[in-house]
């Protein structure tokens, strides 16, 4: 079985192993950690404003008395979910658009690739920055859609060019002559054959989205209050980082660890799925 071979290779890869362990620990911290702390992320301790880390508030408190430990973990949950959803949407969209454009060719190809070019030319930062503050009060899922909408174009170009060669393979031709509808051929025969590329791309998209969310939130263009994410916490903490370093250090450190772990896994996956490749 190929998946077994790949898994074996992945476990042998030291990078991927460390990355995987780190990621599991981080996810455990994000989802199990809150139950261990004494405070909920919505609690406010009016006796401790901006208190440094101590036995009661493990990671200190914010200027309105929130427990940093609880708030940071809550923010990390959101960042992880955003990363995963954006990666899923973006890679899925890239696979579908690229495969349809490559398989059908002709005007479908032209129109789709034009759309890709247009999206590449539009300044994504600007568009997300204009729209997302107006989503205040709406679901944060819209923000995920926005981030994903600008993260799929380059992959879809790669998918398209790979589809062009897959289209001529015998088994695809055979499926066509058996009368299987084309959209089914794309979903059943073309996309699965691109799975290595797509898995690697999705993994790297997760870290890209986590960084993207944090970057937009840094200017207040990302997740809107009262929701928190690592990005909003870092933005908040950076303002007072010299006087109250715990406001900045914990979310920033977790962000770096999270991205690092995902990137290590992504790199390991590339070695495992695609041994010949370089870069």
């Amino acid at each position: 079985m190929r998946s077994k071979v790949v898994l074996g290779r992945l476990l042998h890869n030291r990078q991927a192993r460390y990355g995987g362990i780190a990621l599991i620990l981080l996810i455990a911290l994000a989802y199990i950690g809150p139950y261990l702390g004494a405070y909920d992320w919505t609690d406010k301790d009016f006796l401790a404003f901006l208190s440094p880390p101590d036995a009661d508030h493990w990671w200190g408190t914010t200027s309105i008395g929130q427990d940093m430990y609880a708030v940071t973990l809550r923010g990390m949950q959101k960042s992880i979910v955003i990363g995963l959803l954006v990666a899923l949407f973006a890679t899925g969209l890239a696979a579908l658009v690229g495969a349809f454009a490559g398989y059908f060719g002709g005007w479908v190809d032209k129109v789709l690739m034009w759309g890709v070019d247009l999206l590449l030319v539009l300044p994504s930062f600007l568009i997300i920055a204009i729209i997302s503050p107006r989503l205040r009060g709406a679901s944060w899922l819209w923000f995920v859609v926005l981030l994903a909408a600008f993260a799929w174009m380059i992959t879809s170009r790669v998918v398209r060019s790979m589809t062009l060669s897959l289209r001529e393979r015998e088994y695809v031709q055979a499926a066509l002559y058996m009368g299987i509808p084309r959209w089914k051929i794309i979903l059943r025969h073309i996309v699965p054959n691109l799975s290595s590329l797509l898995i690697i791309d999705a993994t790297l998209n997760v870290s890209g989205a986590v960084i993207g969310e944090a970057a937009l939130s840094f200017f207040g263009f990302g997740i809107q209050p009262p929701d928190v994410s690592l990005g909003t916490l870092i933005a908040e903490g950076a303002r007072n980082a010299t006087g109250y370093p715990w406001l900045f250090a914990f979310p920033a450190g977790l962000l770096v660890l999270l991205v690092l772990a995902i990137n290590l896994i992504g790199d390991g996956l590339r070695d495992a799925l695609d041994p010949g490749s370089n870069s």
Partner: peptide, 21 residues
Amino acid sequence: FVVMAVPVFLLATLLAIATYN
């Protein structure tokens, strides 16, 4: 690998804080 995991806004903020101190 470590540097690539540090987003530029974090790096810039860290540099500014370090210099301030």
